[in-house]
Amino acid sequence: MRSEPSERIDLRIMQVWRISGLLRTLLFGAVTFALMALVGKLFNWPQWLSWLPPAAAVVYGGLEVTVLPRLRWERWRYQVNGEEIYLQRGVWYIKRTLIPMTRIQHVDTAQGVLMRRYGLAAVDVSTAAGTHQIPALAEEAADELRDRIAALARVSGDVV
């Protein structure tokens, strides 16, 4: 099997993942708890059932805050050369993707509120089949990479 892509993404993304993971977990826990409580009232289910989703949320949220960001960051690799973009990601299912420069239609950088706070940006690479994202680079690095990919893609010409 080929070797891993060489570059790592920015370490600060772990903090972003922790916060967004926590928010998502809280939302999920609250909504499912409310739903279970409501349905439980209607059908006279035992009270403890409605505590199951929040409990699951706490367990999963715990993982999202502690180990998952680290694992995810360690796995995330990318590499850009004149020929192609090479990505690796995934905690359980490790996936490596090759995107030839000739297939790239356009490149964007994107930044959410949290990402901006940490001075990070994502690079979105679009082909005719869909978009691939390099999730976190320092803002300047992201801009630089975006311009580099755009230049390389232009040189390679365009085929659909």
Partner: peptide, 21 residues
């Protein structure tokens, strides 16, 4: 091959143990 936009390979831990992708 020139019509393929992107190509991925991947594996789960179990697949890696079995030597498959």
């Amino acid at each position: 091959n020139r019509k393929v936009q992107s190509f991925s390979i991947g594996s789960t831990p179990w697949q890696r143990r079995a030597g498959l992708l």
